[in-house]
Amino acid sequence: MNQDFEPAILAFVCNWCTYTAADLAGTSRMTQQPNVRLVRMMCTGMVDPKYVIKSLLSGADGVLISGCHPGDCHYQNGNYKARRRVRLLNEILSQFGIDRRRVRLTWVGASEGQEFAATVNNFINDLRELGPLDSRGLAAL
């Protein structure tokens, strides 16, 4: 594992579940590595695939998409739509050598601060093992 490498993670989290969980993890003073930048979305169902693509091409080593558990979506079914989009992105991005583990979809409910902190720490550790994404050094993207 490359300890000098600090992965950059962009996390698209839904307002109703995971963002609240992240808040809870913070106010509960849980230890998290500081490599994640959160983007609060109203729903994972509005995470456009191009946000994920742009993130990876612009220096993110991994993208986290996290929302409500199945059945708990504030908008009924946004998380199911997100799951199909992540499935699509997995197929496209892995064709070009972007490891599937770099785009991660999880369900973290509003009360699961502990799970949020663990999800983030696990993801960062996985990315440390995967190393930087090669887009970081490319001028032509």
């Binding site: 695939p49 091409l57 699509l88």
Partner: peptide, 25 residues
């Protein structure tokens, strides 16, 4: 400045990857 150089026009790979997400199915 961030990478030392930038290919122009920009967003070429981004465009093709996005189009794949939109219409490849």
């Amino acid at each position: 400045k961030r990478k030392g150089s930038l290919k122009l026009p920009t967003d070429t790979v981004f465009y093709h990857l996005t189009r794949m997400a939109h219409m490849s199915t």
